[in-house]
Design a protein around this nucleic acid. Structure first.
Lengths: 252, 252
DNA sequence: CGACTTGTTGATGTACATCAAGGTACGTGG
DNA sequence: CCACGTACCTTGATGTACATCAACAAGTCG
């Protein structure tokens, strides 16, 4: 029962001062876009670590942009086996699938305390009518997510444990770096080895053994969920290759 | 060197008589949308079985809607291991990822002779400016694709061989049914067990053994790539559950 | 010319031996 | 108590090897 670690204590951030906007990896908005988004935003949501933000099988009236914090997107089989589909970081957009398909087909769970920007789903149509560039961004976001899933599917389907682990850790590190969550080639990951196992489609024990093999290679360190990249080239080569974004990333 | 089996011999189908439009599973277009699409369409592409339509790592100037035929979307690791990301059927849309992210991150290969509707990628922006409903459809399509990948990732990561196979076969059968490619609970699948193996993330041998176990269950038959569902409930239960679309499907 | 035989090839089916990954159990350490 | 580390055994999945079977091409014979 920790209290949420909001960036600025209990005051909503006005869109024009959105902390995400400082990120170099994100594209700039025009004044018109900014005005629209300000009107579109209906509030902020502060969620504690452990909260389930979206539940598989339910409808959600909202769309979210993550302002701070980490989450996972996951699905669970009837008998409890769980697959983490991907990790959610600041600037990520949540809930599109629900808009489009009715009820959510996956759940989202906060790994840390989070702050999210909230948009009312029923007004999404206005966005499409009046803001083609933002509409395009939403498609962009969905397509990028799809690309990411392609990559993960390739990994889970065809890569061996060590490559798969190296790939996912490298990818998470790069994403964290993009949004300024790294320092000194280190990140504080908010997840346990069990989470990693669920993302990799492997058992906890095997994940542990593989992680041990990986650290033995001296390319990385893992201590108390602090992940440190010692030799980025070595890690990249263990992972096979790395994914890169080629365009400034939009967000809403 | 077979000649393509076009639906109507060498004559381009006008959009208002698009054969896909007859499908009940697809939504209707307004006159305005129809007019736009007619102008947007730049031609038709006939591709022979075996052709690679889109190549990982290259840019493509076009977007496609599949009018007829089957294809696979796949990725390959440097050492040749291949993962089929999903199967492409009539009414599917191809190329969005490329628009949005620059070069394609996956390849698309025709499994049968195909006819595709071609749209110039550089005019996509007009669609967003003047046709918000079609823009929304594109987002819908991307989100639905994402949902599908979620499901496949869950399967490859967490399901056992038999469930996974049952799930994919059931899913493909249902998709084929939606576009009218089944009769008598039978489909003529255009792919070999090797393709199935690459989609499931398993070896050919194990796929074969698993397929044998599945047919032994009397729920399905598989003979010369003809797939027959004998007991849909049994198959569904082996698969765990089935995916269903809840809304009329758009297409462009 | 047409029917039959032979050779080739690609897709399957099955039998091992082997190995990567899973599962259980029981440690440690914060 | 929960996350992590490891040992030990089990098992699901792989890889190799080889047999079967149908489709198809080429050549042969009546």
């Amino acid at each position: 029962m920790t209290t949420a670690a909001s960036p600025s204590p209990q005051r909503q951030v006005p869109c024009e001062k959105c902390p995400l906007r400082a990120q170099t990896a994100l594209r700039d908005f025009s004044q018109d876009e900014l005005d629209f988004v300000r009107g579109f935003k209906s509030g902020e949501l502060t969620a504690e670590a452990g909260t389930t933000l979206l539940v598989e099988g339910t409808n959600s009236a909202h769309l979210y942009t993550v302002l701070s914090g980490w989450a996972i997107r996951h699905k669970t089989l009837p008998d409890g086996r769980r697959q983490i589909l991907n990790f959610v970081l600041p600037a990520d957009f949540l809930g599109l699938q629900g808009t489009v398909l009715g009820e959510m087909q996956h759940s989202v769970e906060a790994l840390t305390d989070m702050v999210l920007c909230v948009f009312p789903r029923e007004r999404l149509w206005e966005l499409y009518r009046s803001q083609p560039s933002l509409a395009f961004d939403l498609t962009w976001i969905a397509a990028r997510e799809e690309q990411l899933l392609d990559e993960y599917l390739l990994g889970v389907g065809r890569r061996r444990a060590l490559e798969r682990l190296a790939f996912v850790l490298l990818h998470l590190f790069l994403r964290a770096e993009q949004v300024g969550l790294t320092a000194d080639n280190k990140v504080q990951f908010p997840f346990t080895q069990q989470h990693l196992a669920d993302a990799l489609g492997m058992s906890l024990v095997h994940t542990n053994k593989t992680l041990r093999r990986l650290t033995a290679s001296k390319a990385v360190r893992w201590k108390n969920r602090t992940f440190e990249v010692l030799d980025r080239d070595a890690l990249t080569s263990l992972a096979g290759y790395q994914m890169t974004d080629r365009q400034p990333r939009p967000f809403i």
